[in-house]
Nucleic acid binder design. Sequence first.
DNA 1: ATGCCTAACAGGGTTAGA
Length: 266
Amino acid sequence: MKIATWNVNGVNARLENLCVWLKESAPDIVCLQEIKSMDEKFPRTALEDLGYVVETHGQKGFNGVAILSRMPPDEVNRGLPGDDLDEQARLIEAVFSINKKDGRPASVVRVVCLYLPNGNPVDTPKFDYKLAWMERFRIFAEDRLALEEPLILAGDFNVIPEPVDCHDPAAWAGDALFRPESRFAFRRLENLGFTDALRAVNDAPKTYTFWDYQAGAWPKNNGIRIDHLMLSPEAAIRLKSADVEKHVRAWEKPSDHVPVAIELAL
DNA sequence: ATGCCTAACAGGGTTAGA
């Protein structure tokens, strides 16, 4: 089973690229972030025509997440617990039955699609909001981990985990994506027992998932790795491969992020 | 020197992203 995550930076602006990529990459489950669309304006039918079930959690103008899947989910949850105060659409979760036999599921896979707050500028409430969101997410993830299911936390974490995950660590030193507080919070999440799927199978340097539109970041490979798939132990033992589909960044009218995909033996 | 680019909303100028 192939599971992918992609911050599309506007699903309507990216619809053509998204459809081309879906046909080429053929993922079974896709987590999308920054759809920047209300549910009513999500290009649902174009994606249904490609064989996907569409579950969205959008809002007007900014943020917004969605999960596309070949098979219909048994359960869908929208929003991070405690997120009702600010109404930012940053998380959607779906549970799928797989290997159904005689009408009964042999197993499940749980997929959490998240768009973690950016947090810049760091001397504003935006950074406090980011750290508070990460703490709420850690509690949520710990709860889900206790279910002992194959579980994937996939999305744009807006965290550069280690110096090797950016082209120029000095340039990112004070940024909300690379501040010690952000990295510690990410490590606390990992330390619950999650495996960073890409790092588990790929230790090549200069492996990035985002390149700024500005200053020739893409041709110079001035990137950062901030899009992650974090696996529960039950998912990690089934990991076959993990790849950054970076060629998509060279297409016309690209997102500034590229898809990251894993293959699980499910 | 974050505002070099991009998207959304609005309706030609601002906000947000990372």
